[in-house]
């Protein structure tokens, strides 16, 4: 599946862009370039594209990873690791989906919301 944004509703960091520092925002973010530092999207989603290389602790509502992510991930809703994902860091979320072929080095901590159960799927 291609998660590249099709509309202007996403902020888009292209693959030739390098950012060092703290990123925060009030719209969904698609990163296909290099980001080093910290990413805080709180109530929005972060997608790391297939060319993305993120070295940052991430806080977002949902996180989808197709590329490389080094850092802890804290997603209030869900995390998806696609088959090309290379993730090194601890993941804390309510739900996680991992495709066959994805690589994860770190802890998975499912924070259950009342009445809901954590899940992971291939």
């Amino acid at each position: 599946m291609n998660d590249a944004p099709q509309t202007g509703e996403f902020a888009h960091i292209g693959k030739s862009v390098v950012i060092k520092g703290e990123l925060s925002g009030s719209e969904d973010l698609y990163v296909d370039g290099n980001v080093e530092g910290k990413i805080e999207m709180r109530s929005h989603s972060l997608t790391v594209g297939p060319n993305g290389n993120v070295k940052a602790d991430v806080t977002a509502k949902s996180v989808v990873v197709q590329g490389k992510l080094d850092g802890s991930v804290n997603a209030s809703d869900r995390v998806e690791l696609r088959k090309s994902a290379l993730v090194t860091g601890d993941v804390t979320t309510q739900r996680i989906a991992i495709e066959e072929g994805a690589f994860l080095k770190g802890k998975v901590d499912i924070q259950k919301e009342a009445g809901k159960a954590g899940s992971a799927s291939s």
Binding site: I96, A97, I98, L104, A117, S119, A120, S121, S122
Partner: peptide, 10 residues
């Protein structure tokens, strides 16, 4: 293994 993560965290 998504399977193992699902089972253990579940």
């Amino acid at each position: 293994s998504a399977n193992n993560i699902r089972l253990l965290t579940g």
